[in-house]
Design a protein around this nucleic acid. Sequence first.
DNA 1: ACAATTTGAGTCAATATGACTCAAATATAC
DNA 2: GTATATTTGAGTCATATTGACTCAAATTGT
Lengths: 256, 256
Amino acid sequence: MIDKIKKYIRSLEKEAIPQLSVNCVIFGFHEKTLKVIVNKIALGQSTMFVLPGGYVKQTENLTDAVQRIVKESTGLEKILFKQFAVFGDASRSFEKEFKVLRTSKLDGDAEVLKWFSKRFISVCYLALVDFSKIELKPTQFLDAAQWLSVEKAKTLAMDHSHIVESARESLIKELPYAPIASNLLPPKFTLPDLHALVEGILGRTIDRPNFRRKILKSDMIVKVGQDNSNKRRPADLYAFRHGKKTSLIDEYKLGF
Amino acid sequence: MIDKIKKYIRSLEKEAIPQLSVNCVIFGFHEKTLKVIVNKIALGQSTMFVLPGGYVKQTENLTDAVQRIVKESTGLEKILFKQFAVFGDASRSFEKEFKVLRTSKLDGDAEVLKWFSKRFISVCYLALVDFSKIELKPTQFLDAAQWLSVEKAKTLAMDHSHIVESARESLIKELPYAPIASNLLPPKFTLPDLHALVEGILGRTIDRPNFRRKILKSDMIVKVGQDNSNKRRPADLYAFRHGKKTSLIDEYKLGF
DNA sequence: ACAATTTGAGTCAATATGACTCAAATATAC
DNA sequence: GTATATTTGAGTCATATTGACTCAAATTGT
């Protein structure tokens, strides 16, 4: 294992852009909750969670690296993604995290330690996926991938919690411009689903009848079926009209 | 000159993060027009324009590098800036531009050519400054700095025109969240100024009486004087209330 | 004094918003 | 089988906002 990691690090030192990493905040929506994919690292006693990420090969476009990383985690190829922040403080590295993990098999290894002590500039992307399509796979060399509610993603390693928080703010800003909801929901969904999704993104409640009125009037979705068949009164199923605008808010309107 | 450049390149190779550059789209507002700062490079017959930019020292925070670059161009220290895009295609370098500039004194120099043929990932920031405060200074080793109307910034070198276009789109997205107008206007301004500024940012006309009504009702500006004393009927002077919201649009409202 | 411009102020119908109520359709409890 | 709690769909109504206007006041140049 450690030899594989060393070999990988050596290949990165040859083929990747130095000191540059990519991190992805992959959003999904499930059980009325906005979630992100994180990877568990279990080393000895300690456990930490990090965002999916990777490096950029010299021959690889930055956006191709992003798509590769998202595919590695989710298996999906054509997804909506957007660069939203860059984290690049001079002290930004995994050095502290590694020193805490004293029990790790990796801890003693100078070469690995040196790699993770390096300063990395992290170019951060948010990505939107249909939760129901996903089969989670951990990032290379990491132990397990899992969904984590955005609300609970407060204790990720290094600055990764800040990255998630920043991603959520950017997601709000993108609401009027990008087809956020149609990329997070399955092809057929109910209005209560959409309502919960927007509430989850904005982090506040929205009057249900008013939300319903506004969405239906906008003509962005079409009824495609009946019944949801689960809890109480069946809900109508809808699909986004494609071709039409799929952003939830009127672009460029801004009140003028 | 060429020796100074070589010395600078050697210092960068030692002290800067490799293959990472920073570019700044510095916006100003003058004569009812949204403008950006560009640097002229006059080498032999050809001339090209590039955005202010630079590199990040190993010991320097990314955001400090940005502030340093803006200060180098404008002399200003505390400005509003925001990261908005990263350009990082595998083929992204100044190699082509350099080969075109055959007449350049630099062209023959292998060391300089090698540096500018490198692939650079450019982290891009937009910055807002009060045009009236600025004394332009060219970026290190470049010939002259000047303001260029955003509309006319279509023929900058490499991908810099795309960077400007992307910056303008991001500026629109930031309108509801950041104090854009108050950072572009002088402390005292007229409503026609503000009107022209917002039209310039959005790239479309806005009904003047309606704009006036909306801004005044929002209570974000206060009348601080009379008369502008130039063309026709004198306009009232206003200042932004600070403490109050200074973003032009209602944050988080988004129509729900 | 008069015309052309620019700024400030106002009108009014149409539309959108916010805060509600109410009934229909279902699962579960009784 | 009936009652009850939930969830979904539909509607009401007063108020606020928007979009498309008109019009007068203050200035400069003729």
